[in-house]
Design a protein around this nucleic acid. Structure first.
Lengths: 226, 226
DNA sequence: AACATCTGCAACCGTTCGTTTGGAGTTCGG
DNA sequence: CCGAACTCCAAACGAACGGTTGCAGATGTT
């Protein structure tokens, strides 16, 4: 039979995504990845180096496309809701993605493949800016970050969920809730941006604290738990 | 010298919190925990059983108090912003907390110490309900969940952040942003709840999808990435 | 066809990890 | 003051892990 080293590498990357998503870098076993891929584990070392390098390769391969193909189409808060709905659906269909994203932040010092990921994110920020023209770029970036945090949180913080809400939650309920929250966030941020624009404060990279109450002092009198 | 077994256990729990927060369950080393605590690692087995049981003990000890002492005081969206500000400050002062929360969801099947944590969460939900009387209990629970997801995400998803926003972010900027987002979420959800109330739909545990556009179909035509 | 080169695999190696054990010191009731 | 029960530790143990090696078969080039 002819050899297909690319297929072997792909099988390893896919099995790596499954195993690393399930157990993280420290918890995943090279042996198990090889077995999952139906390939001898030695291949990992020849193709990717060592375990860390392979982990980075898997993360790059999967996470670079987290937002790929998703788009902010239309205008207004509905556009933001639709975008988050797409993101949620992708997270449900590929549950490894949000988990890998979390493992990356927890187990790695720096993000992998930023060169590929940054322009994708920037493109989503552009979409947000056209959907919500009242926002400046800084605010749009922060909004994108919060939207991803919401989607990932609602997909993967199941244990926290069982402490906050009573029983388990249907997927449709969760989906509708996150979309509603995303829209609420979009409308709220638009209003806040317009208000801060109208108040004449010079637009800066860092959005000024909202006008509601005075800026929050760091709460000197907090008990120093445990 | 007199023995102080309680102090020994406390030292182990504290060192365990540090080590597990840094490396997770699979990544943390019993040896390192013992060394960090200045105690022989064998103590862990006599006091807590095995590594898993010790992990659960550490999580219970730390996470039960994640929201302890935090309160939703006042009314309106500002109250929600203040609450999130408190939560953020706690996360900054105790960086193990958000990390342990994430490890718990990633590495454990079920939440630890739900019996203690649920009433604490319910109390925060009560606070949200008095601050935003337009919300029903389901919506308030979901809001609390999203607020925690936002706070934890902004504290611990640093790698994602470097892909979304350009350089690093000052803590004060982050704090102001999350508080603004929390307020925006609160006002947006209030409006959404009032609208759905006015539209005469019977209030149900699961909030009805917002009225903006039709409910989102699961997007049949999505490419099936990799 | 001969040669070097590459793929794929089973077995192996040295280390590290979680867990246990044996024993020396300490406390406390009677 | 005796002895059972407990605290603490150094050392050891067996399993599991990341990584390597040696070899048999396949490929491509000349």
């Amino acid at each position: 039979m002819a050899w297909d080293t690319d297929a072997t590498q792909r099988k390893l990357l896919l099995a790596g995504a499954r195993q690393f998503a399930a157990a993280g870098f420290a918890g995943a076993r090279i042996e198990a990845i090889g077995a999952d891929a139906g390939v001898n584990k030695e291949r990992i070392y020849r193709y990717f180096g060592d375990k860390r390098a392979f982990f980075a390769a898997v993360l790059g391969h999967e996470l670079a496309g987290l937002l790929d193909g998703l788009d902010v189409t239309g205008t207004g808060a509905e556009a933001i809701g639709d975008f988050v709905a797409q993101l949620l659906d992708r997270c449900e269909r590929h549950p490894e993605l949000p988990r890998l994203l979390l493992w990356e932040s927890l187990e790695l010092d720096a993000a992998v493949a930023i060169e590929q990921r940054r322009p994708v994110c920037a493109h989503k920020v552009d979409g947000i800016l056209t959907a919500l023209p009242a926002l400046d770029r800084g605010r749009a970036e922060h909004l994108l970050f919060s939207l991803i945090a919401l989607a990932v949180g609602w997909c993967e913080l199941g244990n926290l969920g069982s402490a906050v809400v009573g029983g388990t939650m249907e997927w449709e309920t969760r989906r509708a809730t996150v979309v509603a929250h995303a829209r609420a966030l979009a409308t709220g941020m638009t209003e806040e941006a317009e208000a801060s624009e109208a108040s004449g404060s010079p637009r800066s990279a860092a959005p000024a604290p909202p006008a509601g109450t005075a800026t929050h002092p760091p709460l000197a009198a907090e008990e120093s738990r445990s």
